[in-house]
Design a protein around this nucleic acid. Structure first.
Lengths: 352, 352
DNA sequence: CTGTTAGCGCTTTCAA
DNA sequence: TTGAAAGCGCTAACAG
């Protein structure tokens, strides 16, 4: 054996970068045509057992893996992928929605891209574009911005869209949302029924549609109860737990403090409970929170909440989206998912 | 105008299905070459302003959107996508890991596919194959099965893999895991330090690696403390909160009940707390849980936990994965993320 | 600065 | 039952 041969052998067995095997490589190795390999890979009929066996052996020996992207290019079919853009996948509400969506997608052999928008409209738009370019079959979106008309520009025509948790604006697509105003009003009336007349509202940024709707529910309830709307008892723009804690502390330090609190979001509820605890007021100041919280039943008092149904929201939205993808062209609308008042103690504390 | 012409015009304006515009369409409309369009779309230099303007106008008029899949086929580069396979995206631990991974991915312009395995090894494998075919650059996996050697078959060569939360078996890849045994032992010793000698263990299925490691930590601690290991105080196979509730109820009904509980998972902890409450034993039976729980500090007593750091786990794993994708070939290993004992009351209840 | 040609990995005619 | 050729939408490599 010559040095040259030896060297050549070495070069062949240790290539700088190994190209991934393609169907063509498989075809060559099995000594069949490209089309035959394609038929075997896709379980199409019309291949003799002998050839099929040879092809499968070649596939294993080479470590061949089909390339879904290349396939898509030719078939121009669906990608069997949808994108899910939520506020923050780590928030229990979003996480529950995501899980419900995944369940529906899984049944249909569809995979889910997910991402958090973090209340950033620019990011919302960039993500829509990103996933549009990847040709997802559909987009499930919890809008952060106040105008989704950009979707018409950013998404390839034919990409289905359904909004979750918050209504879309500026574009005609289905939305699946909680009865925010109704639920909030129910919570406030529940407090009033316990004799409270000074009921504070603690909410997130009003630019968030759900926050604003819940505030509207609060106002409606206050008005229909014939109570005065005291601006001093209304606090918006609470972005995290600690903000709510501070706001409650300030409210209760007033000369005319509220006797009851309506907290319009899960993290706000938690912050408020912390403040009440620190002030030793958890048994004297009533509280109803919007959106349920894990362990809320084990606190003393238990936290009375207006519970949302994130699983139903996710399930409904996913089903709507898949119907659109399948060709449903009925006029889009808003699906409302009702809330449930869960009495656990904090909301039943009487005014006194 | 003839009928024929008329008919032809009609057919053209109302096509059965409109083809999405491609670069070629844009090129034709702007009266430039395909390559020029490509340059404009990719912001490559070397295009006169005049042409660029024309091209961009054509893009808008036609509603053209680049096709990421087709691009990939030609460049054979990265897809800038990774897959994240977790136990259940709705579990707070998994959700926190997912969020941390997304943060790292976002910085690099990488999108995340996510899916829940639900402790089903067959599903784990099917998902790996699915995402492999979609040519993700890398895979972040919390293994459910006890053998991941299948990955070598299911994944195209060159796909990076890092395991999160649970160690990989049968394949040499990086893993990022909590110090489960150490953390569990610390929790048990903490209970012993409060005078407890009958400390029960409540855990998930032992087939889950983390559950088994935590049990090992329990045994180690019991042994090193010179306490007897009473099999009657050890309960495995608790799959949900309600199971734990039942197990605690049974344990405390024994003639020689435990004076302290070590609950080895977040949902188990919650179930145990519920049982203690119902039995009015929350102040007499001590409890330390593994993995932190939201609101644990607001309960009475607060729940003492051995907290994990899911954010650190997700961040570390993602960084490791991206390093591999970038070409790091150093020998894979196990990264341990430490736990923190958080004293809140339930774990400090003295034996009496 | 601009365009032409070839081909990524696969499926779809259509022919043998 | 099998295969050859064409082309999906795009970019790389080279011209002009």
């Amino acid at each position: 054996m010559s040095d040259a041969t030896d060297h050549a052998a070495h070069v062949q067995t240790v290539p700088a970068r190994r190209r991934r095997p393609t169907m063509r490589d498989v075809a060559q190795r099995a000594d069949v045509s490209l089309k035959t390999v394609s038929r075997v890979v896709n379980d199409e009929p019309g291949v003799s057992t002998a050839l099929a066996v040879r092809v499968r052996r070649a596939i294993d020996e080479l470590g061949f893996h089909p390339h879904a992207g290349a396939r898509l290019l030719r078939t121009d079919g669906r990608t069997s992928a949808i994108a899910l853009l939520l506020e923050d996948v780590a928030n229990p509400f979003s996480a529950a929605v995501q899980r419900a969506v995944e369940n529906e997608a899984r049944e249909r052999g569809v995979v889910v891209f997910s991402a958090s928008i973090d209340e950033d409209p620019a990011r919302e738009r960039a993500l829509a574009r990103e996933f549009g370019a990847r040709r997802v079959d559909g987009l499930l979106l919890a809008p952060a911005g106040d105008d989704q008309s950009y979707l018409a520009d950013e998404l390839p025509s034919g990409t289905a869209v359904v909004c979750v948790d918050r209504e879309a604006n500026g574009i005609a697509v289905d939305s699946v949302i909680t009865t925010n105003a109704l639920g909030a009003a129910e919570g406030v009336r529940h407090l009033a029924a316990a004799g409270h007349r000074r009921i504070a509202f603690l909410g997130d940024r009003r630019s968030i549609r759900t926050a604003d709707q819940r505030y509207a529910g609060y106002r409606d309830a206050i008005a229909s109860l014939g109570l005065p709307l005291d601006p001093g008892l209304v606090v918006h723009d609470l972005r995290e737990s600690a903000d709510a804690d501070g706001a409650v502390t300030a409210l209760l330090a007033r000369p005319d403090p509220p006797t009851a609190l309506f907290t319009a979001q899960n993290l706000i509820t938690i912050g408020a409970v912390r403040a009440l605890r620190r002030l030793g007021a958890e048994w004297s100041v009533a509280l109803v929170g919007f959106d349920d919280v894990l362990l809320a039943d084990l606190l003393s008092p238990g936290i009375t909440v207006v519970a949302q149904d994130p699983a139903a929201i996710g399930r409904t939205a996913a089903n709507l989206l898949f119907a659109r993808i399948a060709g449903d062209t009925s006029p889009p609308g808003v699906r409302l998912v009702p809330t449930t008042l869960i009495r656990r103690g904090s909301g039943e504390i009487q005014s006194g």
